[in-house]
Design a protein around this nucleic acid. Structure first.
Length: 631
RNA sequence: GGCGGCGUAGCUCAAUUGGUUAGAGCAUGUGGCUCAUAUCCACAGGGUUGGGGGUUCGAGUCCCUCCGCCGCCA
């Protein structure tokens, strides 16, 4: 019997949950549910990381205490996970007294062992980054590249943790044990271990940062980041007091995104070694969800809100999509089109339709009862063999964290069922009066559907539960039931219910403008009469003034003359400075309905062209008076 | 600059240790079915496997080199 301790990272409460957080959490939830179906014991941990200078600063800016801030954001995470039906066993917060106690216990222990020591550090400190910079991180003017400010010289005493001491051990351990998955991340970590590891600074003087856990051996300092955050994994299972912790620790699987690979693959193992705690079992590293090829970030403004998506398209639909679309370990592109395609083609057409057509026949032709399983014909046996194979591949891919391949395999089984129902044509048998044969075919299909529902219950818990109840399967599902094709009870009531996975339409206003090669293809198909074009009025306009729209990164407010004066708002601030626009003659669409953009009225739209390298305004090649019509 | 990853059909991805004719899904086209959520089934078109060179009886796979994208480190 397996015992699994599954963790997500604890999420930093400086931001609200986004798609990346949701992905990690849903993956772990799915794995947790999968192991529970297999009959394993599971402890699933998630939570929030709540200390540090960013929190202190944000709280100060908002005029609330750090505790109020972290209470608020931590609750938002918990609420989001509850919304998604995340089956965590414990939600930890680093501000819990118990956690502070454990962190201090560990620090004290390592301090006494001599693993932690005080040292004087001098160097250039960037106030914006809130950290020391090396010379190579400075630009040619000696300024911070991110903040364009001169760092200040600081001489400061801090506590350090010696990483180098255990580097050889870790390297050896990682070579001999399959800890990190996918394997190319192990290569990356081994590469990090090629060179000497500098000591890890683990403290901040309280005069700079008070929002943290105090060092037990020095009241003037708090601990910083990793000793606080990573230790949560041990706090949650009762380390060090409750001896139960060891039984869970032996099955510890940490799931993370690739951005925190180093702390989890280098710092944490060395911390454990120094603490004389055994190494965790596995580290599972996934990639990023990209939007338009870019990482999601606040400054680009392309953050995807998972709760909103799930509310619009369904929780189970989103869970399915996230697991089906991303090859675990690699980056994946998120797009609404891809999501909707998955919903319609995989869920509505293949799976949903299989369910619905089967249940319709059973409810209408079999009096709504699970029919008798008669003598099997060769086509029946063939189907059951391939469905069984699909289920077994599903399970083995799942255990290897290849969720997308697991689901792909299961869908092979689902498609086989659609082929089977076509070939066996139970509706035909009914017309011919052979109810026995039709019953057997439908019973086989019901059994397959039950197997799919059980197999998918970790991924889509709500729909699976509903589906199983439709077909009269009400007990707690187990994997044995999934692999059995006689798990349903003959005569049990079957109801059709509503379609579980309705088709969805791509909202037209969110259709992306096609670009690149796609555009050429579409243009051949979609042509418009010239009247469509002549509806639009384009005129030359002179820019009189330009300024940034407050609180936005991309928007500029322009006053233009064309020849009357108008105000337009345009998203070109990343490419043009306000001052370089003044006096420019540009092309503007002048008969658009006025619109409010971020509260500012816009009476037109300027024309610009852009590609991956940037954006350029369309300007007249010779001088011309403002107001001139463009045809 | 060092290291790593990726590059395969229009798109997303497959192809044990090198081994028949490089495969799926989506999209496209044609035909069929009518139980079903305009769904399903069948067939078809679509590839110089980023370029070049090498090893081999045989290379998407191994080696060298160049190009492009991404990441980590400095």
């Amino acid at each position: 019997m397996g015992r699994y301790f599954l963790t997500t990272p604890i999420y930093y409460v400086n931001a609200y949950p986004h798609l990346g957080h949701a992905y990690t959490t849903i993956v772990v939830d799915t794995v947790a549910r999968f192991h529970r179906v297999l009959g394993h014991e599971v402890f699933f941990l998630t939570g929030t990381d709540e200390h540090g200078d960013k929190i202190q600063k944000t709280a100060k800016d908002r005029g609330i205490t750090p505790q109020q801030l972290t209470d608020e954001v931590s609750a938002a995470f918990k609420k989001a996970w509850e919304f998604f039906g995340i089956s965590f066993n414990y939600f930890i917060r680093t501000t819990y007294p118990q956690h502070k106690k454990v962190v201090q216990y560990v620090l004290q222990k390592l301090y006494e062992k001599g693993e932690i020591y005080l040292d004087e550090y001098e160097g250039l400190y960037c106030v914006g980054c809130e950290r020391f910079l090396t010379n190579k991180e400075l630009d040619e003017n000696g300024c911070c590249r991110d903040h364009k400010t001169k760092p200040v010289y600081i001489k400061e005493k801090n506590y350090f943790f010696n990483l180098e001491k255990y580097r050889g051990w870790l390297k050896d351990y990682l070579i001999k044990n399959d800890v990190i998955y996918p394997e190319f991340y192990r290569e990356e970590v081994l590469n990090m271990l090629e060179e000497e590891l500098p000591p890890l600074c683990i403290s901040r003087p309280k005069k700079r940062l008070s929002w943290g856990i105090e060092l037990p051996f020095d009241k003037d300092y708090v601990t910083y980041v990793w000793f606080d955050a990573l230790i949560n994994y041990l706090t949650a299972i009762g380390y060090p007091e409750n001896p139960e912790w060891e039984k869970w620790w032996a099955g510890a699987h940490h799931f993370i995104a690739k951005d925190i690979l180093k702390p989890h693959a280098v710092y944490w193992p060395i911390m454990l070694k120094a603490m004389e705690v055994p190494m965790y079992k596995k580290l599972l590293v996934h990639g990023y969800w990209l939007v338009d090829k870019l990482k999601m970030s606040k400054s680009i403004g392309n953050i995807v809100d998972p709760v909103e998506l799930a509310k619009r398209f369904g929780k189970d639909q989103l869970r399915y999509f996230l697991l089906r679309e991303m090859a675990f370990g690699y980056d994946s592109e998120f797009s609404l089109e891809a999501f909707i395609t998955r919903i319609n083609s995989d869920l509505a057409n293949d799976y949903g339709n299989l369910i619905y057509r089967t249940l319709t026949l059973v409810t209408k032709q079999m009096k709504g009862k699970v029919p008798h399983l008669g003598k099997l014909q060769s086509e029946d046996k063939e189907l059951l063999a391939s469905v069984k194979e699909a289920l077994e591949t599903y399970a083995s891919e799942f255990k290897a964290f290849q969720f997308h391949r697991a689901l792909e395999s299961l869908w092979n089984g689902i498609r086989k069922c659609n082929v089977y129902i076509d070939r066996a044509a139970p509706w035909q048998a009914i017309k011919n009066g052979d109810l026995e044969r039709a019953g057997t075919v439908l019973r086989i299909l019901l059994e397959c559907i039950k197997s799919f529902a059980i197999a998918l219950s970790p991924v889509m818990p709500d729909s699976s539960k509903a589906l199983l109840s439709y077909i009269g399967f009400t007990k707690e599902p187990s994997w044995e039931d999934a692999l059995s094709f006689e798990a349903l009870k003959e005569g049990e009531k079957v109801e059709r219910g509503k379609p579980l996975f309705p088709r969805v339409e791509m909202p037209s206003e969110e259709k992306k403008p096609e670009n690149g090669k796609k555009e050429g293809k579409k243009e051949e198909k979609k042509c418009y009469p010239i009247e469509e074009f002549t509806k639009w009025e384009f005129r030359i306009a002179e820019v009189i003034s330009a300024e940034k729209v407050k609180g936005t990164d991309r928007l500029l407010k322009l006053k233009i003359r064309c020849p009357e004066e108008r105000q337009i708002v345009s998203g070109i601030a990343e490419y043009y400075k306000p001052e370089e626009l003044i006096g420019k003659k540009i092309v503007v669409v002048t008969n658009l309905k006025p619109a409010k953009i971020r509260g500012v009225v816009s009476e037109g739209m300027l024309l610009a062209a852009h590609d991956e390298n940037g954006l350029t305004l369309i300007v007249p090649e010779k001088d011309i008076t403002p107001g001139a019509k463009v045809k």
